[in-house]
């Protein structure tokens, strides 16, 4: 009995927390890397329309984005809806070059699965979208996704 009492006097031994921070840091770095990946900053204002029948985009690396909206800097680019490819404002006629460069970034085997997502503001007129679609058809880009957000049914 006496022996047990002696042990109790020492108090509970502390857990070794040394490796805890390592684990947390690893998680932290994971999230930091994930969030900054392939995030080209938008220079146009976009609120995507809502829809109920949405699908998830499969294989995000195979999707290229065309952003359409009113520029955030109207004094520089005007207040009419414009197209953003990669990081800069572009013209409809630039889509051909954009598509070629997107194709050349991928393997030959992946190319048939490449698609273009049109991420457009809900207040954009269809004229602009139609121009983009016609230009895509001309350049052989037929897979198209209209980016929307999910709305409850």
């Amino acid at each position: 009995m006496a022996r047990f009492k002696k042990k109790n006097d020492k108090g509970t031994p502390g857990l070794n927390m040394g490796s805890m921070s390592d684990i947390i840091f690893m998680l932290l770095f994971f999230f930091m890397v994930i969030t900054t990946m392939r995030e080209s900053s938008l220079v146009v204002k976009i609120t995507v329309p809502q829809a109920t029948e949405v699908q998830k985009l499969e294989k995000k690396s195979l999707v290229s984005y065309i952003n359409v909206g009113v520029p955030l800097e109207p004094q520089k680019y005007g207040s009419e809806p414009r197209i953003q490819l990669n990081d800069e404002i572009a013209e409809v006629s630039d889509i051909g070059t954009f598509w070629e460069s997107e194709k050349s970034r991928h393997d030959e085997a992946d190319r048939p699965f490449l698609s273009i997502a049109i991420k457009a503001d809900k207040d954009v007129r269809m004229g602009t979208i139609s121009d983009i679609k016609q230009e895509m058809r001309k350049n052989g880009a037929f897979k198209l996704i209209y980016t929307t957000s999910r709305r409850a049914k």
Binding site: F31, E53, V54, S115, M136, T147, R150
Partner: peptide
């Protein structure tokens, strides 16, 4: 590091893009 982790967890949106897919002729 927990604090940092929660910060990044909350501010990041691993935005799963959704959309309606179509095929152009």
């Amino acid at each position: 590091s927990f604090l940092l982790l929660t910060f990044f967890l909350m501010t990041s949106s691993i935005n799963t893009d959704l959309g309606i897919s179509r095929r152009l002729p």
